[in-house]
Design a protein around this nucleic acid. Structure first.
Lengths: 115, 115
DNA sequence: CGATTGGTTAACCATGCTGTTAACTATCTT
DNA sequence: AAGATAGTTAACAGCATGGTTAACCAATCG
């Protein structure tokens, strides 16, 4: 038995695990009115079908929506699923802050030893 | 040319994209002194080698460290790489808050229409 | 020493991911 | 109607992932 939100988290994290897809999202972030598939694809050194597959992954994760008007498809960023990923990570933020504090304390102690 | 931190982010997000691996991390979160590989694996319905592969993925992402003492290997959570993932997501938090606000406003407007 | 316990490695299988090229549909332009 | 433009689909290749079983160190126990 797996949590309901688990599959959604799977898709979100998996979608974010690729640099091309993160770049696509970053590109959409600045464009409130969205971008067409071709405009979106233009800066990338891969074929259009490859970009489409990335858009499928992002779409399945709910991170990008597509609206077809005439022959052009406008893609928009849908950032909401990231909130769930963030919430999952937040569970650990206290933990890594502690670890970073310990590291900082350790470095300071070393500096005292050496200097 | 890809950002230096890009590969690290790839590994972190990819490691987090699997429910078994997230469960392993969640289990380690409560254990300050870490857990042995066998203890860690016990609750899971998969073979030990399968768990080891997950630990390799987590280890490569820097999310788990292993220390061998005698014949037992102690695994500990290293949450620090998650901070980078969080920082990446934070870029979008304003965006998804806006979207959620718009959604809330829309729902309220609908309720006014219906009621 | 011999047996057991903790972990690892190897070989293999099925599936999925990322990219390609080629062909195709659908819409706009002239 | 013909042609260009926007996007999609299909088929394939190569490599990664996630799991298995079986065999194999290495350390502890009796």
């Amino acid at each position: 038995m797996v949590n309901q939100s688990s599959a959604a988290l799977d898709r979100t994290f998996a979608a974010l695990a690729d640099p091309t897809r993160r770049a696509l999202l970053a590109r959409l972030e600045g464009e409130v009115d969205g971008l067409s598939v071709s405009e979106l694809a233009r800066p990338f050194a891969i074929s259009l079908p490859a970009v489409m597959k990335h858009l499928d992954v992002l779409g399945n994760a709910g991170l990008v929506s597509r609206e077809k008007i005439g022959r052009t498809v406008t893609c928009r960023l849908e950032a909401a699923p990231m909130a769930e990923a963030m919430a999952w990570l937040e569970r650990y933020s206290a933990y890594w802050n502690n670890q970073l504090d310990r590291l900082a304390a350790f470095v300071e102690a070393e500096e005292d030893d050496d200097g």
